[in-house]
Design a protein around this nucleic acid. Structure first.
Lengths: 259, 259
DNA sequence: CGAATAGTGTCTCTAAGACAATATCTG
DNA sequence: CAGATATTGTCTTAGAGACACTATTCG
């Protein structure tokens, strides 16, 4: 960046107008399937098409903008907020993991003007359909396999988000963000199964999870009932304090290296 | 994003002005030390301070903007360009690995106005000091340990870039981007040593590299001379076709999980 | 020749994965 | 009770790391 360029920075009008938006790839698991939050677009362009929730960034950290968009579309509210509005679930937003995914800025990705979009990736435990009694009635959860032909370049954004999620399950305790505060090893395994789309050996998975330091810690309790289709009561665990899984839990059937 | 928001998008002036810049964390290895490309700032703010090279994004893909900034500051040119300018090294830019790092958009990170910066990470083989005879005389390579007190939030950007680089050495063949087209296992090991800041056992490293499918492939040749301080001629290798290292080459002394 | 480096061999220990076995529930 | 699930045990094999050793080449 040369001096002239920097000086020119004092007058933003000297440069072509750019808009910065924040889009969110929000993932959850419903009925054992990995789902993404989509909104139906009412206006042009791409009217009637589905898109990732998002909006313009205000004068706030980008992370906060993503959180705000997510709250608006799901009807969740942060827990420290005074008196959550009716129909909103107080505090649920606090249990959502949010991280920056990638930024998309190809010219022409929005036909109206130059738009640079910062995409965020969110992981949430199973949430209710955000329709009833909220201003987020246009948003709904869609199984990721059915989320095709999205507006803008959101197909690519979603694909990048999915790959990130699959990868992060390997070396971080992220899976615990998809389940409640207390969970069984079986529930955790279902998260991996849903996100990776592959069956995992129950016995080996069980031992592996318990062997990774800090991944989960026992609550001492068990479920009050066995599984719906039989089986003993399972022990309950909560997330441990590890930020990285070591050793990692690698995906099984991965092609080696060459791609 | 609701309808009104989208419609408002037709008039960018309706929103506070935002500028989008691209900053580059360019890394290389010189004399066995990991170095980053910095520029000396001439204008306010942060006049006289060092900063990462960068500039405003034009109407181009963000990736191209990063490449352009890198070319301007290093004096390198892409190989397919007709008649490289004098003092520029034709084609060297093609051997640079460039990937998006992260986007920084906290209000106040630039005191003049709202600036959202998309940071890129570049890995280059050892390059000459980009001073002589080019318009990039203000840029120079600095050992990363000496790169402190940078302008804006560039300390944080650099730290994020270094962590990304260290991490990617583990599971990708990225180290080959730091060496020439043909290299010895010893040179590759020096890359790991410089980036990770840790000594690696030569024998185990050697065997490990050769055992990972697609990491390197033999050229059949050897170096023409032994090492400066003695030792036999080493076999030469070039980068293989793997995109991921499997199994990965994990960093040694890493704390387990908890962080 | 002495020192440094390249490359290989060996051994130990951890961890992944296949598979089996047992116990405990639900319908 | 039949089937499903939780949890643990056993065995095999791959891979990481410690260490030793030989061969080659430079000064």
């Amino acid at each position: 960046m040369d001096e002239a360029t920097y000086l020119a920075g004092y007058d933003p009008r000297a440069y072509p107008a750019v808009a910065v938006t924040v889009d969110v790839v929000a993932l959850t698991i419903r009925d054992g399937r990995l789902c993404v939050l989509l909104v139906e677009r009412g206006a042009q362009p791409f009217a009637g098409r589905r898109a990732l929730p998002g909006g313009f960034a205000r004068d706030e950290p980008l992370h906060d903008a993503a959180l705000r968009e997510l709250a608006e579309e799901t009807g969740l509210t942060p827990g420290d907020r005074e008196g959550g509005q009716e129909g909103h679930r107080e505090g649920d937003l606090d249990r959502v993991h949010l991280e920056q995914l990638k930024t998309y800025g190809n010219p022409g990705r929005d036909p109206r003007m130059r738009v640079v979009s910062v995409a965020y990736l969110a992981f949430a435990p199973s949430l209710p359909e955000p329709t009833a009694g909220s201003d987020a009635a246009r948003a709904y959860w869609v199984p990721v396999d059915d989320a095709k032909d999205l507006a803008f370049d959101h197909d690519e954004v979603l694909a990048d988000g999915l790959e990130r999620a699959r990868s992060k399950l390997e070396y971080t305790p992220l899976a615990t963000a998809f389940v409640g505060p207390e969970f069984t090893i079986g529930e955790l395994r279902q998260v991996y199964t849903a996100v990776w789309g592959e069956e995992l050996h129950a016995g080996n998975f069980h031992r592996k999870v318990l062997s990774v330091p800090g991944f989960v810690e026992s609550t001492g309790g068990t479920t009050s009932k066995g599984g719906e289709r039989g089986g003993p009561r399972a022990k309950l665990y909560r997330a441990g304090d590890a930020r990285l899984l070591h050793p990692a839990l690698l995906r099984p059937t991965r092609e080696d290296g060459v791609r």
